[in-house]
Write a protein that binds this DNA or RNA. Sequence first.
DNA 1: TACTTGTCCTGTCATGCCGTCAGCTTACCG
DNA 2: CGGTAAGCTGACGGCATGACAGGACAAGTA
Lengths: 215, 215
Amino acid sequence: MTGQVRTVDGRVAGRRGQATRQKLLDCLGEMLSSSPYRDVKVIDVARKAGTSPATFYQYFPDVEGAVLEIAEEMAKEGAGLTELVSGRSWVGKAAWQTSEELVDGFLDFWRKHDAILRVVDLGAAEGDKRFYKIRMKILNSVTNSLTDAVKELQTKGKVDKEVSAAAMAGSLVAMLASVAGHQKGFTTWGVKQAELKPNLALLVHLGITGKKPVR
Amino acid sequence: MTGQVRTVDGRVAGRRGQATRQKLLDCLGEMLSSSPYRDVKVIDVARKAGTSPATFYQYFPDVEGAVLEIAEEMAKEGAGLTELVSGRSWVGKAAWQTSEELVDGFLDFWRKHDAILRVVDLGAAEGDKRFYKIRMKILNSVTNSLTDAVKELQTKGKVDKEVSAAAMAGSLVAMLASVAGHQKGFTTWGVKQAELKPNLALLVHLGITGKKPVR
DNA sequence: TACTTGTCCTGTCATGCCGTCAGCTTACCG
DNA sequence: CGGTAAGCTGACGGCATGACAGGACAAGTA
């Protein structure tokens, strides 16, 4: 389905080529973690990978193109976030546990990939559809599951019909993503991780069920 | 207090100089709206302003420095967001109105300054303290007011003591900021502005008061 | 008006990154 | 061992960066 990995000039990448390519991606990932996106240069990535800029351009059209590649990879992993919601219960004590685990899982994922996610977020906010699609892919895996949860609670009459399930789920997920992206900021401001998580869980619970949690 | 506007080489900028400087800032602002941050070049800004790159460097150390300048200006305006919350009521029907107006005001502000806020957000996420400070200045104007509101409701016994007022306020504001930054994204995904706002207001209301709104 | 002073702008230059190409080296295969 | 395709890089024109010195300009002074 994905076809073979190809170089920019159309050749099929073999064993060695793929290794080089991967090394470049790894080095780019590291650079993104340590320096501002704006200052990441092709030549630096190449140097770090022990190769030349020309080699970089053999595999990627530009820095952005390579970032997209990394992001795509991460998005695949992000699809697994669905399991934080799907099949979970939103009733009684179980609902609280579901909320907590969702928040935990989400924050962990974000912390793990923060550098790339920053860039994806920027690209998406700037209106680049490719980045936006990737961001969607990750967030939707959670958003869709949450939307379903709300809808189900609505059919059971446990949540007001007026609530737009999609908007609610989307807002909650956006909140999680934003807070996750500024976790360091929160701690600097004096809010500790320990009190941040329960409050996020509380908001999730309130948003989905419309009620205070039973702990 | 702010002292005089100075050039990079220490001279005091006069009438004409300040005009040029401002023009450069304006043009930079426009460029940020129309092209990715990574691709904004000094030479383009200078050309757009009808001057030369050398002139740009007379007033700013680099693109980032100029962006900080614009952001600082915006932050001053952002301080006015406090009024969306301070002195408002969080009881009964008034609480719902307060929530709605907060969401409205916030989204408007973000839409107005979206380009520059994107960059500030990125800088803050990357750990740049200067950008982080600006982001704080804007968000705190709302966060602090909201924190006070929660604390007041807590002393009246209307909100659980366990809730961390700061964390709750911070999370809600982060949500608003994130959703605001991806407004276009939401509409693309099929969530209309009309249903987005009430749901955000609902979440704000739930988060602050812990109860469903009375409309 | 001519002169002086300090602000303001730009031409120019060395430096460094970008992105491409031709050509060399390496690996694989019959 | 030759052929073929993959893999890599030196080299190059082009462009942005950032610094400087010097010229243009406005305003005050005699």
